[in-house]
Design a protein around this nucleic acid. Structure first.
Lengths: 345, 345
DNA sequence: CTGTTAGCGCGTTCAA
DNA sequence: TTGAACGCGCTAACAG
């Protein structure tokens, strides 16, 4: 049995005994159609199971109201919660959300970009730090805002946490607890947000007049392993601080693991602070003190700005940054250093 | 500055000094165009930054090669890994993947269904157990396969883990370790997969001739709380088994928490086994013995079947189930019961 | 309030 | 090997 071709506006018109224009109006501007006519049309629609062909519609209209959210990793908890903020707001404003998963693969990203361009999507939200901008030549994109990680060059409006302020808050908390010699784990040039957290750290240390020599900078990529590895490195170098400030929670958990593996208990022997407030932060023991990403708010803000750009046609406003202040979440992984200032091994 | 309208096939044709038909051919059937002509066309495309208008294209062709993956929760680790399997396979076969996030909201689901219908997407993969089928009347859907959780009525081809076999394996493992009195935590009617795991449990118990009275069935919804709560319930009822088989890992972790809160250590005092093998299963202590979801394989299988349905036009094959056998992952949360058969409180 | 008509951009006959 | 012309389904302008 061949699939029955889907009903078109013409089928509906024929059955309702009106013109196709009337059907179109009855669907999109009901108030411009007599009640009786509207009724006939609606019945015909029910009979035929008619759905307006979106391709034809937007071919005619030249636009859609679909927004693509591009993420490198769907599973990232930062992403999930933010997405919900985006969806709720977009929905309320009559826009639909589609998600693209790039796995950090430039090929994939490019495919999605092409999709956006060729389907004339209304706009785009990027969670991807890097975009294959080189290959982007000529692809004409709708309004874009990037979230969480500033996108490549900063030609796009960016909404995210104030990483510098967050870094500062974290470092100040450690300082206030009495730590003087602290490690910064996860230093890297590749992610701008991490770089800014480091800057915040330095600002706080500067303000407290902690000499550079008391700031132990350990590189890392934000992975669990990088945290564990940092601990080993420091013990091998025999250069162990009393507190660890980590570029993100995952690294912090890695540090805690590394410390635990060496028989230390937290926070008695060492203090650890993270950044992001991922779900695991509550589950591990002790629960991790950290800086919370204002995820939902970031999502809402991002979509609000995007919609403003989409609707305010004139809005050739230059790219801006909107930084949202994060909160310090006090849990159990930070306390004052012991009287020795350095645990006994 | 008004946005420059994107180039159409006509612009390209004019610049290249050929007809639009030739441009179309040069793009989609290069071999049917003289080399010199092709070159001119390609140059013109580069100049104009032309991208074929997907709306017009699929309006003409009547279809797309886009597949929508509909998930209730993007963040579910089961989903993420499976998605990667889907994407890789789909990509290799020339299909693009878009993701929809329903949050289990019927309104949202319906929107996506409409999207699929009106955009004439090629097919759909469902991770959503429930679909608003009532409202679905008349919406004509492309081929659909559901994964992980059989969709509502079983009118759709389903690819998933063999829950019954998994449940059996888990129970047999407990039995083999010497447990006779075991709890099944997370009994529910609402999720078919959970129901099947329970059936597997019962099959194994039957085979071992364990009387019903030694099977402690505790209801639960698969949440962390449900696990904790089950432990409390059992202690209050003073009906404590030597092992817990949980409907999923999250419940199992809840059970472990509950047990730990009462001062017991696992697996010395109690054995616990989960189902799914979520990432946390490795991190907690002791690491959780569980049944692993063959996620990547489920993804690949689902998309392969879907594409077969899409391509084999004639394929009006009836809905089928393809069940994939899961493996038992041995870790540290199961051991033989103590000589007493019941721990000292 | 309703019908007629002209494209939106493209792939595809059919001729040349 | 190439070009002319049609129509996919729809909305918006213009008449009536």
């Amino acid at each position: 049995m061949a699939a029955k071709p889907t009903a078109t506006i013409e089928d509906v018109a024929r059955i309702a005994g009106v013109s196709i224009a009337t059907v179109s109006r009855a669907v999109h501007n009901p108030e411009k159609v007599a009640k009786a006519t509207r009724k006939k049309v609606n019945e015909a629609i029910l009979v035929t199971g008619y759905t307006t062909n979106a391709m034809a519609r937007s071919l005619r209209m030249g636009r859609t109201n679909i927004i693509l959210v591009l993420a490198p990793d769907i599973g990232d908890p930062n992403f999930t919660t933010t997405l919900i903020g985006i969806e709720n707001e977009a929905r309320a404003r009559g826009h639909a959300i589609l998600i693209g998963h790039t796995q950090n693969d430039p090929e994939r990203s490019l495919d999605y970009l092409r999709y956006v361009a060729s389907h004339k999507l209304a706009g785009m939200i990027l969670f991807t730090g890097r975009l294959p901008f080189e290959s982007l030549e000529g692809i004409s994109l709708p309004p874009v805002v990037s979230a969480f990680e500033p996108a490549g060059d900063n030609s796009f409006t960016y909404v995210g946490v104030d990483d510098r302020a967050g870094g500062r808050k974290a470092a100040e908390h450690l300082l206030a607890a009495g730590h003087r010699r602290v490690a910064f784990v996860g230093d890297t040039l590749s992610r701008m947000s991490y770089r800014r957290r480091r800057e915040g750290f330095d600002q706080a240390m500067d303000a407290a007049r902690i000499p550079e020599s008391d700031r132990v900078i350990v590189p890392g990529d934000g992975s669990l392993e990088s945290g564990r590895h940092a601990v080993e490195l420091l013990f091998i170098r025999d250069d162990v601080p009393s507190a660890f400030m980590c570029v993100n929670d995952i690294t912090a958990i890695g540090v805690m693991n590394g410390l635990a593996a060496r028989g230390y208990t937290i926070p008695q022997d060492f203090s650890v602070i993270g950044f992001d407030d991922v779900p695991q932060a509550t589950f591990i023991s002790p629960p991790l003190t950290t800086i919370r990403q204002p995820r939902n708010l970031i999502g809402r803000t991002a979509i609000v700005r995007l919609l403003a750009m989409i609707e305010g046609e004139a809005g050739d406003a230059p790219a801006e940054e909107e930084l949202i202040m994060p909160d310090l979440i006090l849990r159990g992984s930070v306390t004052s250093p012991g009287p020795i200032g350095r645990p006994n091994s």
